[in-house]
Amino acid sequence: CHSECLGNCSQPDDPTKCVACRNFYLDGRCVETCPPPYYHFQDWRCVNFSFCQDLHHKCKNSRRQGCHQYVIHNNKCIPECPSGYTMNSSNLLCTPCLGPCPKVCHLLEGEKTIDSVTSAQELRGCTVINGSLIINIRGGNNLAAELEANLGLIEEISGYLKIRRSYALVSLSFFRKLRLIRGETLEIGNYSFYALDNQNLRQLWDWSKHNLTITQGKLFFHYNPKLCLSEIHKMEEVSGTKGRQERNDIALKTNGDQASCENELLKFSYIRTSFDKILLRWEPYWPPDFRDLLGFMLFYKEAPYQNVTEFDGQDACGSNSWTVVDIDPPLRSNDPKSQNHPGWLMRGLKPWTQYAIFVKTLVTFSDERRTYGAKSDIIYVQTDATNPSVPLDPISVSNSSSQIILKWKPPSDPNGNITHYLVFWERQAEDSELFELDYCLKGLKLPSRTWSPPFESEDSQKHNQSEYEDSAGECCSCPKTDSQILKELEESSFRKTFEDYLHNVVFVPRKT
């Protein structure tokens, strides 16, 4: 048989008469490798580009789960590009990614509803959504962080984005990388972005840091009482949809009607710091009717980097990364020049730590249904340095008659930039024990000054392991946590139920 035959053949030295091919099969003959313009397919066939392209389009058009959109890589027609490569849609070739590779997620039936953290986790790592997304989240724990972890990498949506009755959302900033909504599939009414009845939605994105392009379709905003109209108009300008909307697409009466839409800028007039305090004062603000001013709200939190936005980490279910302080308005003076500047002394802060701070007014709604208010920009203030805590785990070892090696770990709280350490030492008198000992005694162990690591005695271990207080009263049991108490109650309830079950099964009433 021919060298490319495997198993047997019907005619000697003829690659077209093989029972099976050793390498690849091409047009009725066995070959060692697939010549151009053919590609290896499933490690035994040679196919042309049209064959591989037909497989790709067949799966793409069917949208069946589990099928493969075949691509070409290293002269092979394979189910998908290997790690580190992405497909070129024009020629199906796998090309190296520039940075992290995109991950295209194809949605069944063309859309997916995100109504819980669990459903959001199914899209973790996706960068391109081939379909439409509907966000409908009523509640949950730590929602802002969970949504950002699972949806934060999405850069492109081919269909539309719909935010509907998501009472738990305060902001859409968890879509931190969303840059493009194509609108290839539109919501009824030709809408590519749809926001309806979101009672706590206050911000779409921080438009000073976020760009969003909507290729096709219109915007729809109705019944978002805490979303200011200025935020919607800003989205029109940034996304390129200005002029597409009709009169009733953006409701003037049901958007922002319960919001404090600040239209003035508060400026800080005085800032002073110490290692654990920050004193702030800002310019006074009074609405047209000074009785509408209820006070100020001061927001602050630790910020290692200057990239904080107002609604980071917030949701309507209680999660809030900001510390909020309510401040009463100052006494009002008739003389504008003698107006008191409101302020606040922030206490209990960490030394040498940068804080993000902003302040906003708290006002009631005027009778004319106009909203007044003022808010400052987010500023960054760093507390002063102070003395560091003591170095940890000092170790001293003498390696000769004239040297001592000293080692330690950095302090747990540096409280500033540590530039150097101060080492103090003092000579001590020799131990009298060394002169009084009889060095001729056998088995004498000389006193040693070398360091030995501390260890816990058996008594201390027994005390720590004991669940009861000892007789001397030195140790006591740790208080039980809520989960331990709940577990004990469940076990007790189970024992009672099981005992009742045994009584009912074992003891049967005697027939009379």
Rank of each mutant, 00 (worst) to 15 (best):
H106W: 05
L108A: 13
L108N: 15
E109W: 14
G110F: 12
T113Q: 15
T118S: 07
A120Y: 09
A120T: 12
E122D: 06
R124S: 11
G125Q: 14
G125H: 13
C126F: 01
T127V: 03
V128H: 14
V128W: 14
N130K: 05
G131E: 01
G131I: 00
S132M: 01
I134M: 08
I135Q: 00
I135E: 00
R138P: 12
G139A: 04
G140H: 14
N141F: 09
N142C: 02
E146M: 06
A149P: 03
N150T: 07
L151W: 03
L151S: 01
L153I: 13
L153Y: 05
L153E: 15
L153M: 13
I154Q: 00
I157S: 00
I157G: 00
Y160P: 01
S166I: 07
Y167I: 13
A168P: 15
L169G: 02
V170R: 04
S173N: 12
F174P: 06
F174I: 14
F175M: 06
F175P: 00
R176A: 06
Y194L: 07
A195F: 13
A195E: 00
L196C: 08
L196Q: 15
L196G: 06
L204D: 00
L204G: 04
H210Y: 15
N211Q: 13
T215Y: 07
Q216S: 10
G217L: 01
G217S: 03
F220D: 04
F220M: 15
F221S: 06
H222W: 09
H222Y: 03
N224K: 00
P225R: 02
K226P: 02
L227R: 00
C228E: 02
S230W: 04
E231N: 02
E236P: 02
S239I: 13
T241Q: 13
K242G: 12
K242V: 11
K242I: 09
G243P: 01
R244T: 08
Q245M: 13
Q245I: 08
E246M: 09
E246C: 04
R247S: 10
D249T: 15
I250F: 15
A251L: 07
L252M: 10
K253T: 13
N255R: 04
D257I: 05
D257S: 02
D257Q: 04
Q258R: 09
A259H: 15
C261L: 03
L265M: 10
L266H: 01
S269R: 08
I271M: 08
T273Q: 11
S274T: 12
S274Q: 07
D276R: 01
K277P: 00
L280V: 15
R281N: 12
W282M: 03
W282A: 01
E283N: 12
P284L: 15
Y285E: 01
P287K: 04
P287T: 11
D289T: 03
R291C: 13
R291Y: 15
L294I: 08
M297V: 03
F299H: 11
F299G: 05
Y300W: 05
K301F: 04
P304S: 05
Q306R: 12
N307D: 07
T309F: 04
T309H: 12
G318P: 09
G318Q: 04
N320V: 03
N320L: 11
N320F: 11
W322A: 05
T323I: 03
V325L: 12
I327L: 04
I327G: 01
D328S: 05
P329R: 12
P330V: 12
R332M: 11
S333W: 01
N334K: 14
D335T: 13
D335R: 12
D335A: 12
P336I: 03
P336Q: 14
Q339S: 09
N340M: 03
P342G: 04
G343C: 09
W344K: 11
M346I: 07
M346G: 04
M346P: 00
R347I: 05
G348T: 14
K350F: 08
P351G: 10
W352V: 08
T353G: 01
Q354W: 12
I357G: 01
V359G: 01
K360A: 13
T364L: 01
F365H: 05
E368D: 14
R370H: 03
T371Q: 12
G373F: 03
S376K: 02
S376W: 00
Y380G: 01
T383Y: 00
D384L: 09
V390M: 10
P391D: 04
D393Q: 11
D393W: 15
P394Y: 05
S400P: 04
S402W: 06
I404V: 14
I405Q: 09
L406M: 15
L406S: 03
K407S: 07
